[in-house]
C-alpha cells in the first residue's frame, strides 16, 4: 500500500458523497463512484503506478497529470483497474502539443476526446468494437471515455460555462471511446498504419465533433458508396483538421471483394471532397468568400488523404458509415498502451 498524496474527505454515507461531488462541480452530471483509498490504489496498481508518478505534462498550458489524480477520476468514472493503462496512454496522447488540449477543451467548437483503441487489449478488457460500438451498453467504452471527460474538468480545469465554452457541445463529451474490430477489417489495423506492431495496442485521440451517420444501402461498388461518404464529409465544410470514417462490416465485405486497398479508398475520398471556391461560396461555407482564380480551384475538406482515418467496426447488419470531423488546427495523436506484454 502506497501513501496517498491527495486530500481526503469523510462522508456520513454514499448519498452525502454524491451530493458533495455534484454541488462542487466535480462530475459530468452523472453520479460518480466515490474514489476511496482502496479503489484508487487498485486503479494505480492496474498500471503499475505510484501516486506521485507523472503520467504526462500537457504541452501548452504546462499542466501536470499526476498518476493519483488520473486514478481518482478513473475510479469516479466507474473504470476497472485493467482499463487504467488505456487511460494513461490517452492522457499522454492528449498532452502532446500538437493535440492542443488547452484550446480544444475550451473552444466554442464543442469538442469531445475520441479515444480510439486498436489492438488486442480491446478484446482483453472488453472495449466494444461490434454492434452499437459508438453507443451504450459496455462498461469499458462508457467509463474510459467518461474518465477522459472527468479529467478534463477535474485535472485540467476545463469546466463547462467557465473554461469550456462549447457553444452546443455533443453527447460524446460524456464519453467517446470504441475499438477497431480486427476481425472485420480488410486492411491493416490503425496501429500498424501508425507504425506499431500488430501485437501492440494503441490509443489514438481525436478532438472530435459529433458523429454524422449516413446510409450506403443498395450500393456495393466502392465508387458508389464512397461517393456517398465523400458527399457526407463535404457537409463538414472547410476547417476540420481531420476526419474519421467508421465503416460497418457489411460495407467492409464489399471493400474486401472489390480488392480496393485502404490507400485507394483514401485517395478516392480525398479527390471527391474537393469543391471549387465558387461552390463553397454558393453554400456560404467559408468565412471569407473565395475570389479570382480560387473560384475555379478545388479546395478539399481536409488537407490530404493522410488526414482521413478509416476504421472498421460495428454490427454485422447494416450498411452505415459514421463521419467524425476533428477540430481545426490540431492533430490526432497515437500512443502505445503499456500492457506489460
Amino acid at each position: 500500500m502506497t501513501t496517498s498524496i491527495s486530500k481526503t474527505f469523510k462522508f456520513a454515507d454514499y448519498d452525502e458523497a454524491q451530493e458533495y461531488y455534484q454541488a462542487n462541480g466535480l462530475t459530468d452530471g452523472l453520479p460518480i463512484v466515490p474514489p476511496t483509498g482502496a479503489k484508487v490504489q487498485a486503479m494505480l496498481d492496474g498500471a503499475g503506478l505510484q501516486p506521485s508518478d507523472v503520467v504526462a505534462v500537457e504541452g501548452v498550458r504546462g499542466k501536470t497529470f499526476v498518476a493519483e489524480t488520473v486514478a481518482i477520476n478513473a475510479v469516479m468514472a466507474g473504470c476497472k483497474p485493467e482499463y487504467m493503462p488505456v487511460i494513461v496512454a490517452a492522457v499522454q496522447a492528449i498532452s502532446e502539443p500538437q493535440f492542443n488540449f488547452h484550446a480544444n477543451s475550451t473552444s466554442t467548437n464543442g469538442v469531445g476526446v475520441l479515444v480510439l483503441v486498436s489492438g488486442p487489449i480491446a478484446n482483453k478488457i472488453g472495449i466494444n468494437s461490434g454492434t452499437v460500438l459508438m453507443g451504450y451498453g459496455f462498461r469499458a467504452n462508457a467509463t474510459i471515455g467518461r474518465a477522459m471527460g472527468l479529467l478534463k474538468m477535474n485535472a485540467y480545469g476545463s469546466v463547462p460555462h467557465d473554461m469550456d465554452k462549447s457553444t452546443l457541445g455533443h453527447p460524446g463529451q460524456y464519453s467517446f471511446c470504441f475499438a477497431e474490430d480486427d476481425d472485420v477489417i480488410p486492411w491493416e489495423p490503425l496501429r500498424v498504419e501508425k507504425g506499431f506492431t500488430t501485437d501492440a495496442s494503441t490509443v489514438t485521440v481525436f478532438a472530435a465533433n459529433s458523429p454524422l451517420q449516413v446510409s450506403t444501402h443498395n450500393y456495393s461498388q466502392p465508387p458508389e458508396f464512397l461517393a456517398i461518404v465523400s458527399h457526407a464529409i463535404q457537409s463538414l465544410g472547410l476547417g476540420s483538421s481531420e476526419v474519421v470514417v467508421v465503416v460497418s462490416p457489411e460495407i467492409l465485405e464489399y471493400v474486401r471483394s472489390s480488392g480496393w486497398s485502404k490507400a485507394q479508398i483514401k485517395d478516392f475520398v480525398f479527390k471527391n471532397i474537393h469543391r471549387t471556391g465558387s461552390e463553397w461560396n454558393a453554400y456560404y461555407r467559408t468565412e471569407h468568400p473565395f475570389s479570382g482564380d480560387d473560384l475555379t480551384t478545388g479546395f478539399p475538406v481536409v488537407a490530404s488523404p493522410d488526414h482521413i482515418t478509416l476504421v472498421g467496426g460495428g454490427g454485422a447488419a447494416g450498411a452505415f458509415v459514421s463521419i467524425i470531423g476533428a477540430w481545426g488546427g490540431v492533430s490526432s495523436v497515437t500512443k502505445e498502451i503499456s500492457t506489460g506484454r
Binding site: R61, T106, G157, V159, H161, D162, M163, K165
Partner: peptide, 13 residues
C-alpha cells in the same frame, strides 16, 4: 462579453 467568465477562470488557473 461571452468570454468574460473564461478569461477570469484562465487567469485563476
Amino acid at each position: 462579453k461571452p468570454f468574460n467568465s473564461q478569461a477570469k477562470a484562465m487567469a485563476n488557473l
